[in-house]
Design a protein around this nucleic acid. Structure first.
Lengths: 244, 244
DNA sequence: ACAAAAGTGTTGGTGTTACACCCATGG
DNA sequence: CCATGGGTGTAACACCAACACTTTTGT
């Protein structure tokens, strides 16, 4: 904003804000083919008992992203994740707490979108009973406008998956091609692409290297373990790239 | 944000925010094949005299989008435009005015991205001498972190153009296929696509209707005037769609 | 005034590539 | 049983060429 405005516009007209950060935290349970989102049960009015996205208010000297990381660290413990800003919801009427007697303080929500590894996402024990993973396609009614935020995050997740390699942020260091395929299926739907084409397309990108190691999962031919080659991907960064 | 947080975290830790809105306003001068962005010269310190994005602080009871529309209306007069939120920049160090003696008030910038019709974008006279269109690829050094915001907006513009019909928001009601092509060329670069394929692809979408009227522009065969068919496009909304 | 030339919009064709769908093979 | 790899037909696209209709230029 230009400072010029502050001197022209009367101070008392300007809204005072508290800024909150709400996280849409996704994980993929590849074993059961489920896309999950982390929700917590509210312990206060309004919307007492309703699930909502984990959020927090931004503290002094804290960046928005730091706040997002902090609330994430309070709920789950992960060492690898993908995190990016989603959208800012800031209408004056989005939160019923912004009543006329709220002294003119408005609440703004900057939402963040996170993707974490389900297998290593350990719920922090102190919040365990109120924090849980929900199947995205089947969440109950959420508090505030959090369903809107969730929808927005879900759309972003699907888009991101198609043109950027965020899947590798939540896959083990070594994985089979089928592991990736299952992840994509879970998020994008069963028939987003043929497995055969998905394979060859992904391999042709040259960003995976075959470790040569084979793994047997149940019956069937052993699959090769691959590793994401960050160096090979680096020059492709910021280029239009399609992963499907 | 969950209200639970407010009761746990000590009030004095929370940052107080003033929220600003900065607009990245693009227009396309199709005659001269130029992509333009609207900048204003700062009349205050810091960055006195530097160009910056038009912005304002959000007032009480005003939504973010309303603030974006207000600042836009103060600079230019248009009746058709495309407007969407871009990104929120909120690090505690982004604005040098946020010094330790600023009483802990932080400035957050929610940026908006707008596309307007160059031909009808009339600069409001009172700001005329400090408000001007700049060629995007050739802007001078900007105040604050506005170059970052501009870059972000430019990228968004190119992406949006490829998969959503925002071009029709800034084209005349009736236009030739070459008009659209020129607009795409100006934004995406000369060789983004072959004209022949661009034509047939666009027509095959079935969202344009031929008015039958022909226009002659200088020499050459007369071109058909087309009109965007909003009804035909409606069912395609929210579907993955490619315009290139 | 008339014919030729040049400019611009329009339409169609061809080779290459990507993809959907299917099948053979290997461990 | 399942991962792997290859094969085929269709559709999309890059590149190219021809054609249609107009204005401009030359004689």
């Amino acid at each position: 904003m230009a400072k010029g405005s502050t001197s022209i516009v009367k101070k008392q007209l300007l809204a005072d804000f508290k800024v909150g950060v709400d996280n849409v935290i996704f994980s993929v349970d590849t074993d059961r083919n489920r896309l999950l989102v982390l929700l917590i049960k509210r312990k206060d009015e309004p919307f007492l008992g309703y699930p909502c996205l984990p959020g927090t208010l931004v503290r002094e000297g804290e960046s928005l992203k730091s706040a997002a990381r902090r609330i994430l660290a309070e709920k789950i413990r992960v060492d690898r994740l993908y995190l990016e800003q989603l959208y800012t919801f800031g209408g004056p009427d989005r939160d019923p707490r912004e009543s006329p007697n709220s002294f003119g303080v408005r609440y703004l929500s900057v939402s963040y979108f996170a993707l974490v590894k389900f297998e290593e996402a350990e719920l922090i024990s102190q919040n365990k009973k109120d924090t849980a993973w929900y199947i995205v396609q089947n969440v109950p009614e959420l508090a505030f406008d959090h369903q809107t935020i969730l929808d927005y995050g879900y759309r972003r997740l699907r888009n991101k998956l198609e043109y950027s390699p965020i899947a590798f942020d939540v896959l083990p260091n070594e994985f089979t091609l089928n592991d990736i395929y299952q992840l994509y299926c879970t998020v994008l739907g069963e028939n987003f692409s043929d497995y055969s084409n998905f394979r060859s397309k992904l391999l042709k990108l040259g960003i995976l290297c075959d470790t040569g190691v084979k793994v047997c999962r149940g019956a069937g031919r052993p699959a090769s373990l691959y590793r994401f080659d960050a160096e090979a991907f680096a020059p492709l960064k910021d280029k239009p790239l399609v992963f499907i």
